[in-house]
Amino acid sequence: MNNLNYKHLRYFWMVAKTGSIAKAAEQLFLTPQSISGQLTEFASVLGVELFRRSGRNLEVTDAGRKVLSYADEIFSIGDELIEAIHDQRAKKSTPLKVGIADSVSKLVAYRLLEPALELAEPIRLICREGRLVPLLAELSVNRLDMIIADRPMPNHLNVRGFNHLLGESQLTVFGAPSLIKKLANDFPSCLDQAPFLMPGEDAAIRSKLEQWLDNNNLHPIINGEFDDSALMKSFGQAGVGLFAAPSTNAAHICEQYKVQPIGKIEAVVEQVYMIATERQVKHPAIMAISEKGREDLFGISPAKT
């Protein structure tokens, strides 16, 4: 007894589905003559007629419908096999659950997490955004492996976590070109009475920035407060107000948001921390993030604390 030729079965199945040898040939990237010859051989092996002519199309015979039902099942199982293998590969990836404080720059977060994606062992990132305190609550019950934040973990919280200072940067003030043209004075005096966008109250840099403005007797008009740093930059791009962001991200900010720098605030430094539990500190991905972050997150080493 001859064994079933699955290549012939695939050709038959495609012709049955398309109703035409020509259409099947297009799908299979073969010539119609090749398909026709293979079908003739397949029908000869089975000893039955598989198609009958119906106008310009081919119609499946009763015997052909029986073969078709088996072909549907066979190829369906084949698809399930491929899907199962893919799922198995996906399950082999190690999940890394990361909390990202709203006030942290999205560019900084990406640059920090990038080393985890370059490890030999595949990592599947699961990112959660929010305010620091709720994220710390998630960390305390192991729903997060680590947190990227702009400040260390507050001492009064009952969370067993460790702070790792990864980098720091001075601030630069940016603005849309149309808004900058309206500024009367040089930096920093031009900030007085100028429209300004302020980080939200949860941002560690907020109080430092307010203190610097007060020390320099500058009183900008606050047109908005934003927990999300990316949203603040988008409003800045629209000309709603000037805004401050890490100096080391200046080139990226100018390119992405079409804004221009007008001056640096050297007295104010923004910091980035990684917060993790003792159990997770030795996680390969977290170790890679910590090492890479300390090396070149901001292009400078963080100050020792």
Rank of each mutant, 00 (worst) to 15 (best):
K292E: 07
L209T: 07
E291V: 12
I123C: 00
G161R: 02
K304N: 15
A43I: 11
Q271C: 10
S76K: 08
H156Y: 13
I147Q: 01
L96R: 02
F243T: 06
G236P: 08
E210Y: 06
E129C: 07
I262P: 02
G167C: 06
E26C: 08
D145M: 01
N217T: 14
E255C: 04
V67W: 01
D192L: 07
A245D: 09
A120T: 05
L81Q: 09
S44Q: 15
D186R: 13
A63R: 03
S105E: 11
V159Q: 01
A251L: 14
A176G: 05
N5F: 12
T277D: 01
H283R: 06
F29M: 14
L112F: 07
E41L: 13
T61K: 13
S290C: 12
Y11T: 09
L28W: 14
V159L: 02
V240N: 14
I275Q: 02
L30C: 11
K66V: 15
Q271G: 08
I21Y: 12
L9N: 10
I77L: 10
A16F: 11
S234A: 12
G239H: 00
F235Q: 03
S69T: 14
S69V: 12
N2S: 05
F51D: 05
R10G: 04
I100F: 01
D192W: 03
S189K: 15
G293L: 10
G99M: 03
F162G: 05
N163A: 11
A149N: 01
A16Q: 08
K66L: 08
A101C: 05
A149E: 04
I262H: 13
I148H: 02
Q88P: 11
V67M: 08
F235L: 09
F12I: 04
A251Y: 03
T248A: 06
S69M: 14
D72A: 00
I126N: 12
M287E: 15
S20V: 06
A137Q: 10
L165W: 00
I289G: 13
E83H: 14
Q237C: 12
K7M: 10
E73N: 14
E49C: 11
F226H: 08
D150K: 07
L179Y: 07
A245V: 02
G224M: 05
N215I: 03
L179C: 10
P134S: 05
I275G: 00
N2C: 04
G241A: 10
L30K: 10
K208G: 04
E225I: 07
K233G: 08
D296Y: 06
K233Y: 04
S54L: 09
A276H: 05
P95L: 08
F235C: 06
N215V: 02
V60F: 07
A238N: 09
M198P: 01
N249L: 15
V272D: 06
T61D: 13
N2G: 01
S54F: 04
V60D: 03
I275R: 02
F298T: 14
H156Q: 14
S301L: 14
K92G: 00
R294W: 07
L218F: 13
L4V: 15
A43E: 09
L68S: 03
L113S: 01
V269R: 15
F187D: 08
R143L: 01
G299E: 05
T40C: 08
A276K: 00
L28G: 15
I126P: 05
V159G: 00
L144D: 01
